[in-house]
């Protein structure tokens, strides 16, 4: 039962419309049979989706983004788990400073990070390489991974691990058999959030990517700068559809509110 009045309900509907309208219009325009931007009034057509195949750079960029997101979120998780355990378990000098440092990429504008990485990679010979791209994405997504793993690590009752120790488990066994299973939900959702953020990142990547390593959002951004047409709408529609599927999976597994309340920026 909703406890909202009719005015509140109307506001709510308007707000939801506001949030969804731009995405809906992208998907609608993608189905136009016309050669220019218009809503599909004379029937739906898949011609602009077929057209994507004629532009291999979109497909190439898609695979590059997929690889990049998978690699960087995996590395980010590998770095986040021990860091989160250190922060959650121990009180040590420098703990607050380290936490702030690890979360700092949320506060530093991505355009600044992009410039810093471009300058740095140029100096050390990583400019335009896929390695450089992965490294920069690891930094940008670590805060997302760290926050969720951290929340999971704080949630562990230390006595559960003490119980395992008292039963004769070695530190490695405790970690493998008890700690990891307990923080697993945080690790998995942290990885997914990191993956999505890496996949969507455009501002910093514009600086770091080269024509050979360009990602899908960057490819789309550069395309839009020149030209807005039904083709880019159909590419975006594919992206929206993909995200929607992931969203439903995430919601089913973890609950969207938990994912975001533990992970909202700031």
């Amino acid at each position: 039962m909703s406890r909202n009045g009719s005015l509140a309900t109307a506001f709510h509907l308007l707000f939801v419309t506001f949030m969804l309208a731009p995405l809906a219009i992208v998907c609608a325009v993608a189905f136009t049979p016309e050669g220019y931007l218009s809503l599909p009034t004379n029937g739906f057509s898949l011609r602009w989706f077929r057209q994507i195949l004629a532009y291999p750079e979109f497909l190439r960029a898609f695979w590059a983004s997929l690889w990049l997101a998978a690699l960087s979120s995996t590395i980010a998780i590998a770095l986040s788990v021990p860091a989160a355990l250190a922060i959650a378990r121990y009180r040590f000098p420098g703990r607050e400073a380290l936490t702030a440092l690890f979360l700092s990429p949320l506060m530093v504008p991505h355009v600044v990070l992009g410039i810093a990485f471009l300058r740095f990679f140029t100096q050390v010979g990583l400019a335009g390489t896929f390695t450089g791209l992965v490294l920069s994405h690891v930094i940008v997504v670590i805060p997302f991974a760290l926050r969720l793993v951290l929340a999971a690590s704080y949630g562990i009752d230390a006595r559960i691990e003490h119980a395992a120790v008292s039963l004769g488990a070695s530190p490695m066994t405790v970690f493998r058999r008890v700690t990891i299973p307990l923080i697993l939900p945080g690790v998995v959702s942290g990885w997914m959030l990191a993956f999505i953020n890496s996949f969507d990142e455009v501002t910093m990547t514009v600086f770091v990517a080269s024509p050979a390593t360009v990602t899908l959002p960057v490819r789309m951004f550069l395309y839009i700068q020149d030209n807005i047409d039904p083709l880019i709408a159909s590419v975006s529609a594919c992206l929206i559809a993909l995200t929607a599927v992931m969203l439903l999976v995430l919601d089913r597994i973890f609950g969207l509110d938990r994912l975001f309340v533990g992970a909202g920026k700031g």
Partner: peptide, 9 residues
């Protein structure tokens, strides 16, 4: 959803 797609909308 990518901010590029949302802005396109």
């Amino acid at each position: 959803v990518s901010v590029v797609a949302r802005t396109l909308g």
